[in-house]
Amino acid sequence: MVEQRFADGGAVSPLGNRTFDPVVVVAGPGVEVLEHSFTDQLDVRLDPEPAVLGALGDRLRVAIPAEPNRVGRDGRRLALWLAPDEWLVLDPDNLEDDVARLTMEGGWPPDVTFVDVSAHRTLLELRGRDARALLARGCPLDLDPRVFGPDHCAQTLLARVDVILFRLDGTDAFGVLVRASFARYLVAWLTDALEGFYA
């Protein structure tokens, strides 16, 4: 909804894609990187009162995790913990209508903010048997499934770039949210790292 629009009415993602369907941007024998263009993203900041978190979860139809670095899920909609008073809600389909309703309805504590940050980052998916090992080449976190489980998320560095990492639902695939202006660099780094990988 907030993608850059051109005179022809088309939209283009930070990696130059023009479709809502995932596009492969890096591929190797055991790993594939895809861009999920135009994923709707909502940044929420509020005091972490359990009642307010519950009400927010009901209105957004996804559990808002109170525990640090955890993900709430409902279908394709995710709520990622970013800070003690901040969450990021993702939806590849449509978040726009819910955001409009949230802000129109009111009834929130005065210091609540809802900010549409859909243009802030683009979503990469790393999948395949070597996805974890490829990430580990540039990321200081322990990504072993016993440590970084399916409901975990983390803000960290990947190849010196700020990213938000999480596990995509029900698979071994990782989601990597990267700022729009760093996306091309990160894909170049992944391409380069992958070359060394199978050398």
């Binding site: 670095n69 800070a83 003690p84 200081p140 560095l157």
Partner: peptide, 11 residues
């Protein structure tokens, strides 16, 4: 206190 042990480069 929230994220657990992390490397110095994150700080």
């Amino acid at each position: 206190p929230w994220c657990g042990p992390r490397e110095e480069i994150e700080f």
